[in-house]
Amino acid sequence: MLSISNLHVGVDETPILSGIDLEVGPGEVHAIMGPNGSGKSTLAGALAGREGYETTEGSVTYDGEDLLAMAPEERAARGLFLAFQYPVEIPGVSNIYLLKSAVNAVRKHRGEEELDAMDLVSFIRDKMRLTGMDDQLLYRSVNEDFSGGEKKRNEMLQMAVLEPRLAILDETDSGLDIDALRTVADAVNQLRDGNRSFILITHYQRLLDYVVPDQVHVLYDGKIAKSGDANLPKELERTGYAWLTGSGEAEPESAAQEQ
C-alpha cells in the first residue's frame, strides 16, 4: 500500500533523509526506531505533506499513486493519518468542532454524505471510549492546557474518528505513564485489522511489548541502517545505538535480518 523508494528529503538545502526504502503492506505494523535527530519525524512529515520538505530524489507511492504530489488534505482523505510528536494547540476552536470538521471534510472529499450534528456527536462519543478521554475535553480548545498525556490521547481520538488506512504515530508513546501507554496501545490494537497499516515511530520497546510489529527498522542519519523482526527492539535495548556510530560495540545480531 505504501512504497517508499530511495527517498531523499532536504530542508533548506540541508539533506536530512538520504535514500529511504520501505514497503508497508496492508495490515502490517512497522516500527521505526533510531536516535534523536536521525530523521524519523522528517520522514513522517514528508509522508503527511508538511511544507518545506524538498524531495530531491526518489518517490513514494500510496495505493499505486504518487503520494508526494497530493496536498495534505488529500492524503488525509485517502486514509493517511499522522499522530504528531508535538500536538498542536488551536486556541478558540473546540475539540468537538475540529473533530466534526475533520470527519465531514474527509467524508466530503471521498464523495460520502456529510453527517449531521447529532450523528457526528454520537459517532465521536463512541470513539472516545477507545481512548479513555475525559468527556469535557471535547468542549475545550484543541490541546490548549491539555496535559502531555491528554494531548496524545487526543491524537488517538482523531485517529479513531478518521478511521485511517495508514496511520503514522510519531512518538505517541513518549512521555506517557503506563496507563496512557496502554491506552495508545489499545487504540492501535483495536483498530488493527487485516487492511489497516501502521508505522510506529518510537524510542522505547515498551510500546512494542503491547503492539507487536511485523517489522522493525532503525533509522540513522537519514537512512535505514537495519531492519529486523519484533525481536530487534530487545537487542537494541541491550546494545543501544552506539554500534551505529562505529564506536566499536557489537551490532545486534540475533534478530537482524537484512531485507
Binding site: A48, G49, R50, E51, A71, P72, E73, R75, A76, A77, F81, L82, F84, P87, V88, I90, P91, G92, V93, L98, S101, A102, V103, A105, V106, H109, S141, Q158, L162
Partner: peptide
C-alpha cells in the same frame, strides 16, 4: 498543516484559525 492533515482544505484551515483567534 495540522488542520490540513486532518482533512480540512487550505482555506477551511485558514478560516478556522482566524475564527479561533
Amino acid at each position: 498543516f495540522f488542520l490540513r492533515s486532518r482533512g480540512l482544505s487550505q482555506h477551511q484551515a485558514r478560516n478556522l484559525l482566524i475564527f479561533g483567534f
